[in-house]
Simulated assay, not measured.
Amino acid sequence: MTNPALIGSAPDSWGVWNAEDPVQVPWQRFLDEVAQAGYTRIELGPYGYLPTDPKRLQDEIDQRGLTVTAGTIFEHLHRESGWDSTWNDVSAAAKLTAAMGAKHLVVIPEFWRDPVSGEVLEDQAMPDAQWATYAERMNELGRRIREEFGLQIQFHPHADTHVDTHANVERFLAETDPEHVSICLDTGHISYCEGDNLKLIQDYPERIGYAHLKQVDPKIMEKVRAEGLGFGEAVKLGAMCEPPQGIPPMPPVLEALAALDHVELFAIVEQDLYPCEPDVPLPIATRTLSYLQSCGPLR
């Protein structure tokens, strides 16, 4: 028995990384174009990019025949003083996400080097003692978000963070509580960090509660690794590419996701394009949806 993944898209595929940024596509254009491309489901993207007044946002998405699958927010619980500021950010995003009728909140760890400039901000490796504290705080975050907002947090392993490589993802899963913490499997970030998407799905089926679909260009990644480039510079070079031009191959991933024992599993297209010219995203998003619909179980 298979449960086809529920396809959607996100502001990230329109070059959106920040709540406010003059180089980004205006939010009205994103909503217009994501619907024009054929998607009916979206993520909220950076908190504050879309309107944060629930009534106004609901009106805007209803006008375009869209529904919201999740909110997205960063956390920095690995830092000693990180709880209060993380909770303020995460709870605000959770409140809006719940008001939109979604059930998931994608939580992304903070970067150890600046995603745009590549400046090193802290040590790349997290000490063993810090891992234990981090896991405890993540469990508490997941518990409180569920109890107070009715949402499941979907932790997003990410390049240039402390939870990046296959080994670090496995360590995170081993140290966190399955009852409170699931993961958002981002196929592009796992491949970017030389991980194995299919093995993670096979080994941890019960922990994968959400997915981001993207690919990386292997040739560009050779340059990124050889020169030690940061994630932002890699994106500018085109490291995250339009499928089917990169890895991992999408059909096996979609088949593996469909085989998971989930009533519903959202698979959100997320091709990092920051920054990009405003006319670039729509044709890519349209072609990507058509391609994905041709190669695996989706609805």
Rank of each mutant, 00 (worst) to 15 (best):
N88V: 12
T72M: 14
L105C: 10
I73F: 06
G142E: 00
D186A: 13
E148V: 04
W112S: 07
I183Q: 00
T86F: 06
N168Y: 06
S91D: 00
L77T: 08
D177H: 07
W131G: 01
E122F: 08
A102M: 09
F172S: 02
P127G: 06
Q124K: 14
H189R: 04
I108C: 12
W87Q: 06
E148A: 02
A174D: 11
W112N: 10
F172A: 08
R113C: 09
G142Y: 00
I153G: 04
A92D: 10
L141Y: 01
A93L: 04
I145G: 03
G150H: 03
G118R: 08
H158F: 11
R143D: 06
E147H: 05
A129W: 03
N88P: 02
N139L: 00
V106D: 06
E80D: 15
V169D: 03
G188K: 04
V116G: 07
P109G: 10
P109L: 10
H78M: 04
D89R: 15
R79P: 01
R113N: 12
D89C: 12
T161K: 05
E122S: 14
R144F: 01
V181H: 02
T133Y: 07
W112Q: 08
F149Q: 05
E147I: 05
I190V: 15
N88G: 09
H104E: 13
M138S: 05
D128K: 07
D114Y: 03
D186H: 11
V181I: 02
P115R: 08
L121P: 07
A125E: 14
